[in-house]
């Protein structure tokens, strides 16, 4: 028996998402639940549940061996500790900010410059794009290994180049004043290609008419850039700043592969320190508190981003 189709067609689209009336609709509703069952269960067990659990753990002292029901409640003690008595965490937080701000600023400017170049009349655009994109898909761990070799104090190609130019050797990753900047440079190297591609997409969305009109009025290239391109790229730039900041605040692999936080904790970042606190020193409560502090910062950035986007779309 085939079900009658006329009424289903009409109703399915206009009915609001409430209890369906016909038996057929109800059967279809059940399929909807069946299809989302596993994904929702999985997100509950491996994402939503854990974040609540993590918040709970941050209020306790826990070594992951004591049964969960018996971990001693300590209130906000862990948060108090990491900010007032821990001598590494504030430093790690500062390092992480420095890493994010340095990398994001450079990416936003450098990415724009190269995207503008690639958006002009140019030969082999695909080839350029591929070349600039290669580091993006390479494992940060592998890049860390390569750059640790290149920046090596004794055998590194960069120091040898400096010597060849009669310049003094640098400590780079061994120098507490330089190491973080080397890491920023590596991170820019890795991700600038990604932002070039995003900028290019944004540039290609700008209608050519604007430029034609500006040219009729005799605008120079720089005037076009300042009065047309940059204002219209604002949403793209905002997107790049936010995603890049959120990503950079979570850096782990690169630091792990190059310095491990050394020298003198000058490259220690929040996630790396959290990892050490949890899995080397078995202090799950403190580590969870660190995770929550960073999470709060990321959430704040996300909310600001949503606000800014909404303002732009409604304005």
């Amino acid at each position: 028996m085939r079900p009658p189709n006329v009424s289903i067609n009409g109703q399915a689209r206009w009915r609001p998402a409430s209890w369906p009336s016909s038996g057929l609709m109800r059967r279809r509703m059940i399929w909807g639940y069946v299809f989302i069952a596993i994904p929702i269960l999985w997100l509950l067990v491996f994402s939503l549940g854990p974040i609540l659990f993590s918040g709970w753990v941050s209020l306790h002292r826990w070594d992951m061996i004591t049964p969960v029901a018996q971990m001693p409640y300590t209130g906000l003690e862990n948060y108090d500790y990491i900010f007032t008595r821990d001598n590494v965490f504030p430093k790690a937080l500062g390092n992480t900010f420095l890493f994010a701000i340095g990398g994001v600023t450079t990416n936003v400017i450098l990415g724009l410059a190269f995207a503008l170049l690639l958006n002009t009349k140019i030969r082999g655009r695909t080839l350029w794009r591929v070349l600039y994109f290669l580091p993006v898909i390479t494992a940060p761990l592998a890049l860390g290994v390569i750059f640790a070799f290149m920046f090596n104090r004794n055998y590194g190609v960069i120091n040898n180049l400096l010597v060849a130019l009669n310049l003094p050797r640098q400590g780079f990753l061994n120098d507490p004043n330089q190491a973080m900047f080397v890491l920023i440079a590596i991170a820019v190297y890795q991700y600038v290609g990604y932002y070039i591609v995003i900028y290019l997409a944004g540039l290609q969305d700008i209608p050519q008419d604007y430029y034609d009109a500006a040219r009729v009025d005799g605008a120079s290239y720089w005037q076009e850039l300042w009065y047309i391109t940059l204002p219209l790229l604002r949403p793209v730039m905002l997107f790049i700043i936010v995603t890049n900041t959120i990503g950079a605040l979570q850096v782990f692999d690169l630091v792990f592969a190059t310095t491990g936080g050394a020298p003198a904790n000058s490259t220690m970042t929040v996630v790396l320190y959290m990892y050490n606190t949890a899995f080397k020193y078995s202090r799950m409560g403190r580590a969870s508190a660190m995770a929550f502090v960073l999470f709060g910062i990321i959430l704040l950035i996300t909310i600001v981003q949503l606000r800014l986007f909404r303002d732009r779309t409604t304005a």
Binding site: A12, R15, A17, S18, W19, P20, M25, R28, M29, W31, G32, Y33, F35, I36, I40, L43, F46, S47, L48, G49, P50, I51, F53, S54, V57, M64, I246, Q250, F252, V271, M274, Y275, A278, M284, A287, S288, A291, F292, L294, F295, I298, L299, T302
Partner: peptide, 27 residues
């Protein structure tokens, strides 16, 4: 598909997108 709770569940999915990996690492 239309089913009760669809909007709420979808908002939960959207919220889950914002959870970074490191916060759930220990649990």
């Amino acid at each position: 598909y239309q089913f009760p709770g669809r909007e709420v569940l979808f908002y939960i999915i959207l919220a889950t997108m914002m959870i970074p990996f490191f916060v759930t690492l220990i649990p």
